[in-house]
Design a protein around this nucleic acid. Structure first.
Lengths: 362, 362
DNA sequence: GAGTGGTGCTGAAAGGTTTCAAGAAGTCTG
DNA sequence: CAGACTTCTTGAAACCTTTCAGCACCACTC
């Protein structure tokens, strides 16, 4: 058994074991037992559970008392097997550690709750294998529907699921097919807005920090950046690619290290990061290596997470309507799973640049 | 149907509807269909699924081909109903938006994955009602076990679940009973360490920012703070309580507003926050209202989340072994659910003070 | 060639719930 | 008071899988 270990290495008061009073674990009471205890039939118990209005108040009370005293807990597997429907939605997130996605999740939860459903969160952690495992699991569970911000938007699984009857809505990712609903923010536009802002401020050598390149958001935001350059008549190599292994603070620090290490005449004067986690890491590392932000390096992030405004230098960022994204996606999913005339839709929101000190200075 | 709305209010390209090719939705193929297609019996298909080594390679291949071509997806409800066991753990988090808990969740996931199980994340969002709903749901789902950071550690549900056969491990909360395993960090000690640090720096009027008071962590960290005062021979009213409604950045800002509004001779010279989210909000607000940190106000946070180091003024904080916490909890849960000789344990880790600019200055 | 052992497959039962057609008891209506 | 409704309750079937005792077959062994 694991033993208490201190954060700092020194052992603390550690483990205290106690006798385990032999698990009662008697097989749980079922509807049958409740029926017997209440002196009614099995069907009546089920009615109390599912259509209480059909049961006379007296009988209902009897049954409910029996349930209470037996500690009856309905077996959801059996219910779902027979009834054929689940009361659960799942949101398969790209990175649960990124506040952007937890904000989206909050929107999902609100919408689901309003419809009387519960939400299970799953975290693929930017790993295609985990994503695939979770999709298999969710399909086997026969959940009502799946919301997903995919690692790989071209995965075959994304089409087989809905083809076999599990509705699936793409979140923060638009796909140009007619297989799914999707809810997204225009990432190309977001990239364009960010870079245009930097160009207006006079920057002509700009780093794009993001990766890996199989993540759609990374690619789209870069193409928006390229579009902005083109529009401004700047050559494509004005954008210096700094490819990261993930969209995390740690990777941002790594990028900062690389950037600060460049000779000053080749170093970009501004950086646009594919998300705020990268931007915060980059910012922190650059500042600690002695670069001034924004004088030596202007930084633009993406997502405008709550921490962006509280950073060492408040971060200019591209804001997305996070909760609305989640709410809308959940609503589309609910429509798809319950409305026979459902039409797939692609909803696109517009991002908005929030300018702060990291580009504009004080 | 929801319509695309721009983050900034201006409509964008909005919705694009496409015809929905009449859902095939043919009732999914079951083992029976697979058996028929492969020309074997039902039991054999089940064996291929669960004990492939009992089936001859030739037959197995036939069956697998049939599964493939029929798009067979095992019905997990039926499996679980018959087999009686789930392959899922759940972690019911206090606040999915707090990076501390997502780090814990990562540790849980790693341990579960190593044991071949999957994890569903649920978010109570500091709401006792939601927490209760989720516990009901999870019990009905008959998950293998539940990890929980409870809103209310004294809730009756926390004892009925294990009494009825669903193992439950408390995370980040030690309870002094013999009903559960628990994994926690010594919050009293953490509070004491934080305040001792401030006292050493000469502070004698210190604010404690945290709430609501039904959250165990808030209470424990405060009693640690009181203990430190006592030890130093300072009167109890050296600690000024600033009660918040939740442990969030927004509430931290609110507290900052209140704090900065105090006349200078009554304003505390230091603040200890019940977590880093509060501390970051407090820091941001105070700085923007013109207070210098740490000169006018020293700040200590709690959790040492990744963003603490990247804050406007890098934050002194009390670090906890987050992933280890999750991993250990999951291991205890697995032991409880599979080892008949399981003994409940209470594992306690030691927190560690990480000193940064927000107290010590540059 | 009768017995022995092993391998691979079968078929029916079981698991806990919901559903539904039908029965029972009670209430009106004329 | 008969008939027509209502209102409740019942019991069996169905959902899809896993499990397990047992059967068929084959290859050996003495």
């Amino acid at each position: 058994m694991a033993v208490g270990r201190a954060a700092g290495g020194a052992p603390h008061d550690g483990v205290r074991a106690r006798p385990h009073q032999g698990a009662p674990n008697r097989t749980a009471a079922g509807v049958k037992d409740v029926a017997a205890a209440a002196g009614v039939s099995l069907g009546t118990v089920s009615n109390v559970l599912n259509r209480p209005e059909l049961v006379s108040p007296a009988t209902r009370a009897k049954v409910e008392k029996a349930m209470e005293s037996l500690g009856f807990v309905r077996n959801e597997s059996a219910r779902q097997l027979r009834a054929g429907s689940s009361r659960i939605l799942a949101y398969l997130m790209l990175d649960a550690g990124n506040p952007f996605f937890t904000d989206v999740a909050r929107g999902v939860e609100d919408a689901a709750r309003a419809a009387g459903l519960s939400v299970f969160l799953c975290n693929s952690n930017e790993d295609a294998g985990r994503e695939a495992d979770y999709l298999d699991l969710l399909e086997q569970q026969r959940v009502q529907g799946v919301l997903i911000t995919p690692v790989d938007p071209d995965s075959a699984r994304l089409t087989t699921l809905p083809a076999r009857g599990t509705p699936l809505v793409l979140v923060d990712r638009a796909v140009d097919d007619s297989e799914h609903c999707s809810v997204a923010v225009d990432d190309v536009l977001g990239g364009e807005v960010a870079i245009s802002h930097l160009i207006e401020l006079g920057h002509t050598r700009i780093a794009y920090v993001g990766g890996p390149n199989n993540i759609g958001q990374v690619v789209d935001r870069r193409s928006g950046a390229m579009r902005a350059l083109e529009r401004a008549g700047l050559p494509p190599d004005s954008l210096v690619n700094l490819v990261t292994g993930a969209l995390t603070v740690a990777e941002g620090r790594g990028a900062g290290q690389r950037l600060a290490g460049l000779p000053q005449d080749r170093r970009p004067t501004a950086a646009f990061c594919a998300n705020d986690l990268l931007a915060l890491g980059l910012l922190q590392q650059c500042v600690s290596l002695g670069l001034r932000v924004p004088e030596d390096l202007a930084i633009v992030g993406y997502d405008d997470i709550e921490f962006a405004a509280a950073a060492a230098v408040p971060l200019t960022s591209v804001r997305q309507p996070r909760q609305l994204l989640g709410r809308t996606a959940a609503e589309l999913l609910l429509d798809e799973s319950s409305n026979p005339d459902h039409e797939h839709q692609r909803v696109t929101f517009t991002p908005e640049l929030v300018v702060r000190t990291s580009t504009r200075g004080t």
